[in-house]
Amino acid sequence: MAKKAAKTLAARNTAILNRTRVLTIGFHLFYLTLRCLVFRTSLTHNSLLIWILLSLPSLFIQFQFERIGRPTFGTAPGELLRSGDDLEAQGLTEYMWDVLYWTYGCVALAAVLGDVAWWLWGVIPIYSVYLAYTTFMGARGGMQSLAGGTDSAGTPQAGSKRQQKMEKRGGQKQLYR
């Protein structure tokens, strides 16, 4: 069983990418079908332009997932050349899935409710700013504690438990600047 983990990852990535492709085609066909057949009067050039512009980021994300996650196989049967990156990874990949699924929801709501539902797509930049802020503040707090900053109560932190015990006994006190 050589490369079992790589083969498992390749099979999982293939299943995820195939499911994502079907979902994307399904949601966009749902939008076009409802807008062209059921709500014909609401289909204008502006609504098509909005649909295309706000769907481009999700289509770009899906293209990136295909590029980095799709496994490549050799000419021999079962020969795996590259399993692809893990599409269930934390961090940026997770955020890209959030954008993709949120866009699916916006496309479905815009198909049913009209162009007003596209305003929900504005949540994505707000969420991005929130994530960037919390990441920055977390990293900033981590750097302060490493540099001998203060704890949540505003008192200086000792470098180790040994130093804290020595300070309690009244022996060698550390001076903090």
Rank of each mutant, 00 (worst) to 15 (best):
I50Q: 13
D151R: 10
K161G: 07
A76K: 15
C106I: 15
Y31R: 01
L131E: 15
L9I: 05
A89C: 10
Q157S: 10
N46C: 05
S152L: 15
I61Q: 00
T33W: 08
L100D: 12
R35T: 00
D98N: 05
S152C: 11
Y127P: 07
S47Q: 10
P71W: 04
I52K: 12
M143L: 07
N18V: 05
V38I: 15
L32I: 00
D98L: 06
A2H: 00
K165T: 13
A139Y: 13
G149F: 00
G170A: 12
Q164M: 08
L43W: 06
N18I: 03
A5C: 00
S55L: 14
E167F: 03
A15V: 06
F73L: 08
A139R: 14
C36G: 12
K173Y: 06
D98H: 05
Q157M: 08
V38R: 15
A76R: 15
T75F: 06
L43R: 09
T44K: 01
M137Q: 15
L54N: 12
V99T: 13
D98R: 03
F30A: 03
A5S: 02
L109T: 11
N46L: 07
W97K: 01
G170Y: 14
W97S: 03
F27M: 13
A117Q: 10
A111K: 04
R162E: 14
L92N: 09
W51F: 02
L49H: 01
R67W: 01
L81M: 09
Q90W: 12
L54I: 13
Q90S: 15
R40F: 08
E167I: 04
I50S: 14
F30T: 08
K168F: 14
Y133L: 13
L9Q: 00
R12S: 04
W119F: 13
S128E: 13
W102T: 01
L80P: 00
C106A: 15
Q174V: 02
L29A: 15
I61W: 07
A117D: 11
L53V: 06
R21S: 03
I50A: 15
P77G: 07
W51L: 00
E88S: 14
Y133H: 11
T134I: 08
R70D: 14
E66N: 06
A11C: 05
F136N: 11
Y176L: 07
T24F: 12
T33H: 08
Y31C: 00
G74K: 02
A110K: 02
A139I: 11
T24H: 12
T8Q: 07
A5E: 03
M96H: 09
V99K: 11
A108T: 00
E94G: 11
I68C: 08
L49A: 01
S58R: 13
T72Q: 06
L146C: 06
K161V: 10
M1S: 00
L92D: 10
E66H: 14
G148I: 05
A108L: 04
W51V: 00
G154K: 12
M1I: 03
K168E: 13
G170R: 14
P77E: 13
T75I: 05
L146I: 07
S42R: 11
Y130Q: 03
M1D: 00
A10L: 05
Q64H: 01
